[in-house]
Simulated assay, not measured.
Amino acid sequence: MRILLLVTAFNGLSQRVWCALQTLGHDVGVHIAGDGADIIAGVRSVNPDLILCPYLTKRIPAEVWQHWPTIVIHPGPVGDRGPSSLDWAISDGVARWGVTALQAVEEMDAGPVWATRTFTMPAASPRKSALYAGPVADAALACVLEVVAKAADRSFTPTPADRMPVDVPGARARPAMRQTDRVIDWAGPSEQIVRRIRAADGSPGVLTEVAGLPVYAYDAHPGTVRGRRPGEVLLRREGAVLVAAGDGSVWLGHLRPAVSEGGRPAIKLPAVTALGSLVHGVAHAASRSGRGPQTASGYGQIRYRRAGALAPGCARPGPGG
């Protein structure tokens, strides 16, 4: 089968789909989507039997989906719609989530369903990037393989979305998540702060203030220090800073200044580097040198172990602070 992957970027999921379909013997092409005219021209030049969109943030022109079967892999379960599916799922702390393969139509994420998978969310709030690269990618690939099998069956007809059962409670159409939806209150629960920041890893981060500097925060981990003034920077360790919260504290590994300097966009940096002189007087926490896996609290750099020619693994040491 001649299959075209129409994508915004040839990211990890797109590459995984490409490899799997190549292994199955399909003729697989990739087109990085530009504007509408570019998409139309790219599809026409290939004239595929099937178009798959494992990672696409642009609208598909009607001239494409009306003439070629075009399936969008949406990172949400049946009933979910919108561009911030994973952000909302992590922020809300849902127990289950999923992926749905939808046929492209005029209305976004509203087309008939070709395949769907659900999965249990990790017990601890996951980073958006880790969730996408793990359970979401696994479910997406399963949906892709089912779609390709069904596309070869001329008798197959996808099910209208409104006739599909909604297996995940709360799945619904939701708008793009904005910074006003991500606001964190340092006097609030540390678990909620960590969850909101992880819902924004690695983009766009959460706009907040640390040591008086407006920043976008990333790489959050629970700390163990309690009873300090919310928002106060308590400690620093291996590039990270520990910030007091209402019921505990939170390690922030990386920050991006919200205001650019010299007209150049600010970049994501280790938190201590981003804050510079603002944390020069902050005490250093003892470095963690243990070799165990990352735990629920604490912060430490990833450590790499090697035994002869083998690398058994790497992990963040923890806990502490």
Results as ranks from 00 to 15, higher is better:
residue 195 R to F: 02
residue 105 V to A: 01
residue 165 P to L: 14
residue 135 P to H: 12
residue 126 P to G: 08
residue 81 R to H: 11
residue 114 W to M: 07
residue 96 R to C: 03
residue 65 W to Y: 15
residue 260 S to R: 13
residue 107 E to Q: 11
residue 130 A to S: 13
residue 42 G to N: 04
residue 94 V to R: 15
residue 143 C to W: 10
residue 23 T to E: 05
residue 215 V to P: 13
residue 138 D to G: 11
residue 140 A to K: 03
residue 208 T to P: 06
residue 100 T to E: 10
residue 248 G to W: 00
residue 299 Y to P: 12
residue 272 V to R: 07
residue 13 L to Q: 10
residue 80 D to N: 06
residue 84 S to A: 15
residue 207 L to S: 06
residue 195 R to N: 09
residue 79 G to W: 03
residue 186 W to F: 06
residue 252 L to R: 00
residue 274 A to D: 01
residue 321 G to A: 14
residue 274 A to C: 00
residue 49 D to K: 09
residue 81 R to Y: 04
residue 156 F to V: 04
residue 218 Y to W: 08
residue 21 L to R: 01
residue 214 P to G: 02
residue 9 A to D: 14
residue 162 D to I: 02
residue 173 A to L: 02
residue 305 R to T: 10
residue 303 R to T: 15
residue 11 N to G: 07
residue 274 A to V: 00
residue 233 V to H: 00
residue 131 L to F: 06
residue 20 A to W: 05
residue 209 E to L: 03
residue 154 R to A: 09
residue 98 G to P: 10
residue 30 V to F: 04
residue 71 I to M: 00
residue 76 G to I: 07
residue 177 M to E: 11
residue 176 A to H: 15
residue 57 T to Y: 09
residue 158 P to R: 15
residue 168 V to R: 08
residue 36 G to Y: 10
residue 306 R to H: 09
residue 94 V to Y: 11
residue 308 G to F: 07
residue 137 A to T: 10
residue 311 A to I: 12
residue 210 V to I: 14
residue 294 Q to M: 01
residue 129 S to I: 08
residue 296 A to M: 05
residue 182 R to P: 13
residue 138 D to K: 04
residue 211 A to V: 00
residue 240 A to P: 10
residue 101 A to W: 05
residue 314 C to H: 06
residue 120 T to E: 15
